[in-house]
Design a protein around this nucleic acid. Sequence first.
RNA 1: GGCGUCAUAGCCAAGUGGUAAGGCAAGGGUCUGCAAAACCCUGAUUCCCUGGUCCGAUUCCGGGUGACGCCUCCA
Length: 516
Amino acid sequence: MGRRYENSLPAIFQRGLGDNMALRFYNTLTQSIQEFKPITEGKVLMYVCGPTVYNLIHIGNARPMIVFDTARRYMMYKGYDVNYVSNFTDVDDKIINKANEEGVTAQEISQRYIAETKKDMADMNVLPATTHPLATQEIPEMIALISDLEKKGFAYNVNGTVYFRTRKDPDYGKLSHKNLDDLRSGFRDLKVSGEDQKEDPLDFVLWKPMKPGEPYWDSPWGKGRPGWHTECCVMSRKYLHSTTIDIHAGGEDLIFPHHENEIAQVECSTGQEFAHYWLHNAFLNINNEKMSKSLGNFLTVRDVGKKYDLQVLRFFMLSAHYRRVLNFSEESMEAAKASLGRIRTAVRTLNDHIAHAKTEELTEEERAKLGVDENGQPIALEVTSDPETGKLILPQDMRLYRWQFEQAMDDDLNTADAEAAIFNLVKFANIEVTENSSRAFAEAVKKEICELSDILGLIVDVKEDSLDEEIEKKIEERQAARKAKDFARADAIRDELLAKGIVLKDTRDGVRWERV
RNA sequence: GGCGUCAUAGCCAAGUGGUAAGGCAAGGGUCUGCAAAACCCUGAUUCCCUGGUCCGAUUCCGGGUGACGCCUCCA
């Protein structure tokens, strides 16, 4: 066949097979890419640190949500039973401050923004977690953990504040790969209030006493609330029903101190490893700057949603590797919109071919193009390499793209390459599926595009909403004018509709329209 | 100061010890009444600079320059 699309694969797919064809992740703990081996065959226990709910989530919060949702979807696709837990931190200084500002309870604030966050997640096509625990619902377990650490000598109480004794944990720093002495010398320059009551500047708070007007719980150390680092220790293992979990994920800023402190608490308490794989996404910048309150450049998901379908945001987030800093900009979003549109246009065209197909069954030639047998079942793919050149011998049919997609995703979730595989498939569809194709062929190609897109959480088969009658009438009127060769009238109507944000396209299958 | 990351066409962005995926944008063409969409064609003699290893480096090692992250609440 020798078509162009078959020669347009990245170099990696044209060389020898890798040693490892299995799913691999970069593990912050070991600073290397490792094959993923779950504790229990076929099951994944995964925890992702969720947002503190004191405001609408911003696009930085959205990155781990989208990235790890994609990881989850891919593992589900691979056949894993994924138990996915992600918390909402619903007690925190920021929430309390916000509540005081508005003169309402902290609970009211957190409930409100949990609902808003869930709405944003749904709009980004992020699947609801298996469980979304709340910190405030787990206080007794947190107290139990802190008590256990105190009993074992890893925690100490100073006037109602309980600290973790980092000096006693020989492994402290193993995740962030920090040298404790360096950390301590760094801390000497910082003037942290209340520092003097700590045994060591690196000790962190497990329980803090209440201040007037704050929510509180009773504890062996008096009224107060738990420190931030304790909640995830409890919620992850409780809802994943295991002392040790497979994957713990979150933004890279959480590596230190949050995740380091989680490891310290859990492993000092249980004596067992907390999580086997630690995954961290890089930050999202905006216009080449870090998002920060001082710069005032926070952009909420809700804001982006006003201007773009949030599927565009999702496509954009997945267009770079999750461990690379990504820059959010108007230009990038416009490019992402056009790119996603290319996939959607291809699917629409396939829908037309499906609707107007002249024949039903696959021809022999079509079966060859799909790589399926007489019954339409995919022929098992065996990729081998040429003994002389070492180059891979790749299938010359549609199976190529799914293979490419899986290779990319197996390789530490290379979603950029996975998207490229979908584009190669789109090209295949645009070239191979014509008005002479059988319905079965067009359907098979469409199914392939939709399935791969769905693994990335991308919705590409967009149902056309109906136009109002008046506009339908205009389109009919224009068709009549075109037939009568009154092109001036036809173009006038087209311009009129364009002004209303409706673009007309004349195809062999009739007039198609799109909203801008 | 400590630890770590990155530097690829106009833009975004993969990637590999053997000579550069994909998308957006741009130009030309086919199709179309004209458009739009789609398809085809064109584009980095080259992967920040500089030494080194190698038959061969963008890819490995050293040095340099530049950008950035964490070390403090933060996804």
